[in-house]
Nucleic acid binder design. Structure first.
Lengths: 348, 348
DNA sequence: CTGAAAGCGCTTACAG
DNA sequence: CTGAAAGCGCTTACAG
């Protein structure tokens, strides 16, 4: 290609290399390397190291992480797979990941899969080409061939928010079962007896776990359940329509997540039913600004930033510990009661 | 270090290299390189190329982008600086950037600065160490020494959403002035005469441009202005408090952005003033779910995803065109009228 | 404590 | 059309 400008070549000339620094300090580049690396700095005489450091600063030396990675077979980069960054659930998780990774000198390579298996494969291959040291996966389905292959190859991988059904794969999740139990107890406490669940997709662990927990909490009685095709407003609205058709006397809905709840709210409004006067709605996740919605959403809060932090932590362990122990970290969930829940119409 | 596992070393053995592929196909690795690179594939005999491709697939060969980058001095990676990914303004911009970058084989390295100058410098250095080919900057202040230095060094850099006062720095921005004009015209049309502006920080181009446009649109009459310390709910609430103290008869507020508007809404509620009955509020950006707020927010929509796309496009041009032309792309803004604006109390 | 050498996995003039 | 060689910028056993 012609006329291609890379970061390195500026009018000021090329970037200084380790060899430049070494020459400026009158030493061999091997010595300069040792002096500039905190872990080997003690291998060189204090005075020499100092001289090298000064030269490096004076020249504006910036080490080349790519070259180092090539030599050491470690990129200190981590691939992060999310369905879609614009889903408000993910930014806090990603920030948690970045914050922890940063403090260890690692960088996240963030990629959106849009719930598209082919796209996910392409993105995964791209990350592999960039030689990421491991993966943090927020796109896991319960049955996930791509992840199974990767784990089979010995790839370092942890899932976050969701799990994959592969024994020994570390994961960080919220305590969904407990969150669901709190939500159902809250509705029961308000007097609701006809509680329905707008379940998330059952191909995904969160959808399955929350549904199971709902069935358990609701008991045999009247556990109306409709599965939504996706964790989206649109799917939530469609699910709500089906639900209200099949079970018109429902007085409370536990939604698979906040977006589904938002969809349900929209459908209720369209049908002229009031929330919470006619029907109560509970969400899941406590997405940003859920308290500013109309009505303010009662929902189950999961500590998303902390989930990201813990996921990064698990992966870092996998990468640096001799005998890493695969474990699942479960973070507490807490019901946040706001304006979208109230006693059922009959009891008021 | 001991026990460190890199992506490459799995129980299945090390990853195949180009040399492995070449050997499997019975050719020299230079030939394999040419065959596998679309741009040089025509330099090798069709049959040979085919044989090499097959061998590569069979071995599960994944090219090493780091090694290639070291050789070519191009990482095909781009640094992206945002203040904070959890600010709802940024995910759509970042996705736009990623979407465009992806389709050109580039990857975004995303970094949060938290509006902290020192942190920004550290992150910037980290990106430089990873030899990004250029930067897309959403953190620009009007006076921004770090960016000035980088541009001075010849670094490829474009700003998005905001501009830096450095001649010749490409930028993608929304048409803020027009957006403000539309908002003020809307309020005027409703009968408001006492319109105030909760301005964003004046150290940032958007804050300055919107304020200037407000002054121009509002004319000399009663242009009450309070500058908020940041684009946050908290700063918006504090600003609203000061504003209502100094100008209690205000009937409409144009907020510097949606978060400031949200802060103003909170302060109004706390003071027992109703929006829009007592005071109208207009936001800026049309952040996700602004239509679900209480009240649904009248606001100026800026095409954030498209801003990201265009910013990536500009940077790509900078990186691949022989004689790139620095230009500023201005994207249209459009007022979206919802429930937070109404005629002033007197006129009803 | 420091240096000389090899090599990580590629690409690309240069020959043939 | 293909090969042999050099080199991108580092790190790290191995000598001394």
């Amino acid at each position: 290609m012609i006329g291609v400008r890379a970061y390195g070549d500026t009018m000021a000339g090329r970037r200084p290399t380790l060899d430049d620094v070494a020459r400026a300090a009158g030493v061999h580049k091997a010595t300069a390397s040792r002096a500039l690396n905190p872990e080997t700095r003690n291998q060189v005489k204090f005075e020499t190291a100092h001289r090298i450091t000064v030269a490096a600063r004076r020249l504006g030396y910036v080490p080349n992480t790519l070259a180092r990675g090539l030599r050491t077979s470690r990129s200190t980069a981590v691939g992060v797979l999310v369905p879609d960054l614009t889903n408000p659930l993910f930014p806090p998780i990603v920030r948690g990941i970045q914050d922890r990774l940063d403090s260890h000198g690692y960088t996240a390579l963030l990629v959106n899969t849009d719930n598209d298996e082919e796209r996910e494969r392409a993105q995964f291959a791209e990350l592999a080409a960039r030689r990421v040291d491991g993966f943090i996966v927020a796109t896991a389905r319960r049955d996930h061939p791509l992840l199974a292959e990767a784990v089979g190859r010995g790839t370092a991988l942890v899932t976050v928010n969701r799990t994959v059904e592969l024994p020994g794969t570390p994961a960080v999740v919220g305590d969904d079962a407990d969150g669901v139990a709190q939500a159902v107890a809250h509705l029961r406490g308000l007097g609701h007896t006809r509680i329905a669940h707008l379940a998330g997709p059952q191909s995904v662990s969160t959808g399955a776990v929350r549904l199971r927990a709902f069935r358990q909490a609701a008991g045999r009685a009247r556990d109306a359940v409709v599965e939504c095709a996706a964790y989206t407003e649109q799917a939530g609205r469609a699910g709500a329509r089906r639900l209200l058709l099949a079970h018109p006397s429902t007085t409370a809905v536990l939604a698979g997540n906040d977006l589904i709840a938002l969809g349900a709210l929209a459908e209720l409004a369209a049908q002229g039913r009031s929330c919470p006067d006619d029907i109560s709605v509970v969400g899941f996740n406590d997405m940003p600004f859920a308290d500013r919605f109309r009505p303010p959403l009662t929902t189950v809060r999961v500590p998303h930033h902390e989930m990201g932090v813990q996921a990064a932590e698990l992966l870092l362990e996998l990468l640096t510990r001799p005998q890493p122990v695969a474990r699942t970290v479960v973070l507490p969930a807490r019901l946040v009661v706001r304006g979208s829940t109230a006693p059922p119409p009959a009891s008021r």
